[in-house]
Design a protein around this nucleic acid. Sequence first.
DNA 1: GCTTGCCTTGACGTAGCGTCAAGGTCGTTG
DNA 2: CAACGACCTTGACGCTACGTCAAGGCAAGC
Lengths: 262, 262
Amino acid sequence: MLTIGELAAFVGVSTRTVRFYHSLGLLPEPSRDASGYRRYGAEDVVRLSRIVALASAGVPLVRVGELLEAGEQAFADGVAEVDADIRAEMRRLKALRSTLADLDSPDRLALPRVLADAIETIRRAGAPGRYVDLYRDSWILAHALYPAEVRRYLERQSTSTWSDPAYLDLQVRMLLLAEAPADDPRVAQLAADTLDWMAGQEQEDTLEDYGELFSDERANRIMTAQWIMTPAWDRLSELVLAGMQERGLGPSTPEDPDPAQR
Amino acid sequence: MLTIGELAAFVGVSTRTVRFYHSLGLLPEPSRDASGYRRYGAEDVVRLSRIVALASAGVPLVRVGELLEAGEQAFADGVAEVDADIRAEMRRLKALRSTLADLDSPDRLALPRVLADAIETIRRAGAPGRYVDLYRDSWILAHALYPAEVRRYLERQSTSTWSDPAYLDLQVRMLLLAEAPADDPRVAQLAADTLDWMAGQEQEDTLEDYGELFSDERANRIMTAQWIMTPAWDRLSELVLAGMQERGLGPSTPEDPDPAQR
DNA sequence: GCTTGCCTTGACGTAGCGTCAAGGTCGTTG
DNA sequence: CAACGACCTTGACGCTACGTCAAGGCAAGC
């Protein structure tokens, strides 16, 4: 017969744990020897092994008790359920590992992949870091508030826009003009190129989607609270808006049409 | 800017959790709006996402705080460590699944596979269940007390003995004689066959190993406390012992030589 | 005989939140 | 404009599954 320490060591738990299971009624109190020590038999080894296996699978102890008292069929069903939970947990851990791999990158951590990739490209193309950060932050807030909408928006145009080098180049040039004066000749040039790019786009609902997404009053406050307007961008915005109306492009709403300029 | 509920929903935790992280200093208290509500920015989204990822990987929150305050290199090292822990956890879960599969079988749960298989064979061959159970229980106790020794003993002779159909057949016949009278002719026959089988064995250290394993005083008390001697087995034991000395077989110690007869 | 280690019961401590309680506020709806 | 439900605030207590002393008795080896 085994002492509590020998039993505990064999199944890989502490003596405190065994006594705790006694107090819960999970494991019956065994008989005592002359000096009052608990003495365990093979049956206890088996029962404790079962408890420990289930507990280490994360099954709440109350549930473990239920399972051990249940009939053969109910027990088997319960164990099958536990097994399914473990498989789910393994999938969760697998997904978690890929999240951990992105833990040092704020973009990948809080944004859909398409956007994170686009922002990284923009950053690497030489756009000023401080403004790229602000740009990213506004997207993070938008995504946090309207995950479904942002995702839907991105899905519809991921290939046409956010991975289009031409579009990303326009963004970079815009960000580079952050601290330029409003009458910098590059502003006018960028406005013209932006309009050209828009004209080349097949689907004009791109802009409408954007308008729909940010027609919300609160969303606008969020974006503008993060985003800073500079003289050059104000001018750029004016020029693009004017050009669009001239060419009959863009949304019918009076919303600011160019994502690049929020 | 986000309210606490919006923030919590986005990263997939409760508002209570966010406030708890504030109280631990993991996430800085953000500024409040006019009515005293907390308002969160993109930075908070990123930081909370990091905390939640690490916490859901099982990292203690104190350690999470250390990691977030640490330098880039220390952070990367810490995350790598966490990743290794996750891989270890996945291996643990995989092993646990196979344990769960054996949860309904006391033998496989508490005994090395070789023994469990042998006992199952013996049981299926028609040995009386009650005595097979006692037989198994004594092995479980022995294994619980001396896991390393039992394992070593089994490794040395697993192929030669415990998977030898002839040996297992002797065990079955022995168990079938549990309630037979001492002068049952099958007892003498079994003794003779047992001696023949022993003579056919190449390595006689099989028996010596067994003697070594159970030369311990306490071990003997354990085995005999579980195991019940019947008239037929007493007689069988006598016959085999006498035969062995006659043929000069077995261990030199005065130990009971046949595992089947404990 | 003395030390070292295991056993006994009992009580308090811990992590990571969940869950009221008792209010104030926001946004929509009648 | 009043009311309603859904949010926000702080505070405090509860929960699970044990860990960790505390204070003492017993066992086994030198």
